[in-house]
C-alpha cells in the first residue's frame, strides 16, 4: 500500500504492507527510541503521537496512517526540549525502557489539555489516570508524575 505520512515534521512517501505495525516501521528506520515491551497495547513503552494523540504504535497498523502526523520521542527531543528537561530534572527513570513512552504520554497530555485537575481539582490524580496506559516496573511512578506535572506547568 502506498501512503504519505508526516514523521517528526518531514514527509515520507512509503509503500508497505498495510498490516505493518507503526512500531516495526519506526524501528526499521533506525528510530529505536520507541520500544517494544508487551507488544499488545498494555505497557505503553511504544507510545507515539498520531495527530497529537498518544497511541500504542505496536497496535497501530501503517495502513491507517495516510496523511497523518506521527511524532516519536526523537521528534520531541529536539522540538520540545522542556519535556526532556522535566524528566531529567525529576530523575523520572531507572532502567529507562518505559521512559520514551512516558515522555510521549506527557507530550500528549499537554496537547489534550491535561493539568487542570480532575473533578476535585487534583492535578496529580488526573496525571495518574492519564498515565494508566504506561507501565513502569522500576520507579513506583512518583518522579514520573512529578516530571509530567513540572512539564505541564512550564
Amino acid at each position: 500500500m502506498k501512503l504519505t505520512v508526516d514523521l517528526n515534521g518531514s514527509t515520507r512517501h512509503i509503500d508497505l504492507d498495510a498490516t505493518t505495525s507503526l512500531l516495526d516501521w519506526l524501528r526499521s528506520l533506525g528510530l529505536t527510541g520507541t520500544k517494544e515491551g508487551c507488544g499488545i497495547g498494555v505497557c505503553g513503552a511504544c507510545t507515539v503521537l498520531v495527530d497529537d494523540l498518544p497511541v500504542s504504535s505496536c497496535l497501530t497498523l501503517i495502513g491507517v496512517l495516510d496523511d497523518r502526523h506521527v511524532v516519536t520521542v526523537e521528534g520531541v527531543a529536539d522540538s520540545d526540549p522542556g519535556l526532556v528537561e522535566a524528566f531529567v530534572d525529576c530523575e523520572a527513570m531507572q532502567c529507562g525502557i518505559c521512559t520514551p513512552g512516558h515522555v510521549m504520554a506527557a507530550a500528549g497530555a499537554r496537547r489534550a489539555g491535561v493539568g487542570l485537575g480532575d473533578d476535585s481539582g487534583d492535578v496529580d490524580e488526573e496525571i495518574r489516570q492519564w498515565l494508566a496506559g504506561n507501565l513502569c516496573r522500576c520507579t513506583g511512578y512518583e518522579t514520573i508524575v512529578a516530571a509530567v506535572r513540572s512539564y505541564l506547568e512550564r
Binding site: 527510541g33 527531543a77 529507562g96
Partner: peptide, 10 residues
C-alpha cells in the same frame, strides 16, 4: 543516564 534515557538515545 537520565538524558539519554529521556531522549530515547540509550
Amino acid at each position: 543516564d537520565s538524558r539519554s534515557k529521556a531522549t530515547g538515545a540509550t
